[in-house]
Write a protein that binds this DNA or RNA. Structure first.
Lengths: 156, 156
DNA sequence: GCTAAAACTTAGACTCGTCTAACTTAGGTA
DNA sequence: TACCTAAGTTAGACGAGTCTAAGTTTTAGC
């Protein structure tokens, strides 16, 4: 406990950060939010295709916890963004770009979950937190997670 | 590398998660987004008060990387939420509730940054990623971070 | 103590992601 | 084959958070 206290104490005096650096950080977060919807959808669509052979709006709505008109609208946005292929009233499929994005997201998701689990966090919490955290993990941090994971696994 | 590959491989077969659990996860993320603005503002306001004795909209705008009308509007929201005290054209101060929230956020922020640093991540990346990650870290995960940090520091 | 510049607010527009209500289409079954 | 039900879409509203343009207030320098 004392170690913990000490690092908290050290960090307690507010350090002046460069305002532009801080602003850039917040801008990054805002940008991440814009792509979150797309990432969550393609990730889920890929999952459903693997599980069922196709992704149906009704199931996307159920898993995302939203109503079907929301799905319809967001799928049009994904289509406009070139991430999905789809005809009215039909199941949804990924384009090459969509599949690529989905793969990257799923990989990142798995790494984040595995990393949290390696810290001793229970599965449900790990999944829940990963859902939010994954969109804000830079390549650098993802690599650090992988590295820590590797060390953790070889020490078992 | 092989250890890494292996855990990725294992996780590769898509496991069927309970749809409701998944939906609950996404709902949690959406809820976190709603409080993010408030958290970022009170955290920054507390920082500025400590640094300057008061928090001015112009500096909040600069640090957040947004324009001043945005700050005006959001500050009214915080006032309506009972987090800040403030008169027109004057500096912004925190209410007790605001101060409490700010303290919790700053503590969480410090833990996340320290944790990322302990993984060997550079300061700039740690700060940038923490900004996004912190809002999605549950109490459980925060404790796990603290615990890992403690172990890391005592092993140095 | 006036006045110009800086800080702040108001008004109004836009996008995103959500919703409900009402409509259309597709598909299985009688 | 015709129809009922489930799935999907359309229309329209709403709040959050951003912006620009144009106004008002405060403050600092002369």
């Amino acid at each position: 406990m004392s170690k913990l206290q000490s690092y908290e104490r050290e960090a307690f005096e507010t350090v002046e950060r460069a305002p532009e650096a801080q602003a850039k950080g917040f801008a990054t977060v805002r940008r991440a939010h814009e792509s979150e919807m797309a990432e969550d959808y393609v990730e889920l669509i890929a999952e459903l295709i693997e599980l069922r052979g196709e992704a149906r709006p009704v199931e996307i709505a159920e898993r995302l916890g939203v109503k079907s008109p929301t799905v319809t609208k967001n799928i049009s946005r994904l289509k406009a963004a070139g991430l999905v292929r789809r005809e009215r009233y039909r199941a949804i499929f990924l384009t090459d770009a969509g599949r690529e994005l989905a793969e990257a997201c799923r990989r990142r998701h798995r790494v984040v979950v595995a990393f949290l689990l390696s810290l001793g966090i229970d599965e449900e919490t790990a999944e829940r937190d990963a859902e939010g955290i994954e969109h804000h993990v830079s390549t650098t941090t993802l690599e650090a997670f992988e590295h820590a994971l590797q060390k953790f696994q070889s020490s078992k």
